[in-house]
């Protein structure tokens, strides 16, 4: 019998703590599969954020560091500068990357820091129980936008890929949605591309993945996937925002 669903080598054989229907588990798997396919497990160092993925250091079977909230790109910069021939990635949520860590991500991108960033956009602060995130949609209700995000008071969602695309530093910027098999495969191909950029020394790469958080959206897992497809995608259009010119 052929095993079709094997655990990637680059993932630890432990159960994760993520809620049913959460996108984090799937994204871990995609990153691990790419590490396997590129044969880089041994020379990869990952940086875990503060957020629901704070325990990522228990899940990836590669060296990992845990960073203070938002500071993962700075930590990754330190690692990469010390060990330029290793592969370094950060794994960050939207609060971590686009609120408290905005300065760190912008400057890592501007420097063209040769690292890969996996950016999980679930439009919410998952770990702290559902507060408004910088990517929360206009009108979306959260613990700290109980009447729905009001742009008059709380401004507008940040489109990280588009924003970073104005910089010269990044080599590859793309956004995918975690909705159906086709799009999950696309997310994986972007992740692979991003790591390949780093391997060929092209500089900063980032993949943003629109990911469901059924728990804090107060939805059933299936409805959460539909919400990504129907609502998030309208505000955060998937696609490639920056890639090296051919040749």
């Amino acid at each position: 019998m052929k095993v079709v669903f094997e655990r990637p080598k680059s993932l630890q054989p432990t159960k994760t703590h993520y809620c049913p229907g959460c996108g984090h588990g799937v994204i871990h798997r995609l990153v691990a599969e790419v590490m396997d396919e590129l044969g880089i497990q041994d020379k990869t160092i990952g940086v875990a954020p503060v957020g629901c993925a704070v325990l990522a250091y228990n899940y990836f079977d590669c060296d990992m560091q845990q960073a203070a909230h938002g500071r993962a790109p700075a930590v990754a910069t330190g690692i990469k500068r010390a060990l330029p021939d290793r592969v370094v990635f950060t794994y960050q949520g939207d609060g971590d990357l686009a609120a408290i860590g905005t300065a760190e991500i912008v400057h890592a991108a501007a420097r063209g820091e040769n690292i890969t960033v996996i950016f999980v956009n679930n439009a919410i602060y998952g770990m702290t129980g559902g507060q408004m995130a910088p990517t929360t949609l206009v009108g979306q209700k959260t613990e700290t936008s109980p009447y729905g995000r009001d742009p008059q008071m709380a401004g507008y969602p940040i489109r990280v890929c588009e924003m970073l695309a104005t910089l010269d530093g990044p080599s590859f910027l793309a956004r995918a949605e975690l909705t159906d098999v086709k799009n999950i495969n696309k997310a994986k191909s972007y992740i692979k591309k991003a790591f390949e950029m780093q391997l060929s020394g092209k500089g900063f790469s980032l993949v943003e993945i629109l990911s469901p958080c059924p728990t804090n959206w107060g939805m059933k897992p299936k409805d959460a996937v539909d919400w990504v497809k129907n609502e998030m995608v309208k505000v955060f259009p998937p696609g490639v925002f920056k890639e090296p010119k051919e040749g």
């Binding site: 702290t128 129980g129 507060q131 613990e143 700290t144 109980p146």
Partner: peptide, 13 residues
């Protein structure tokens, strides 16, 4: 946001 003081900002929001 940070735990364990979340009810405070939620109340004020």
């Amino acid at each position: 946001p940070i735990t364990p003081q979340s009810e405070l900002p939620a109340y004020l929001a």
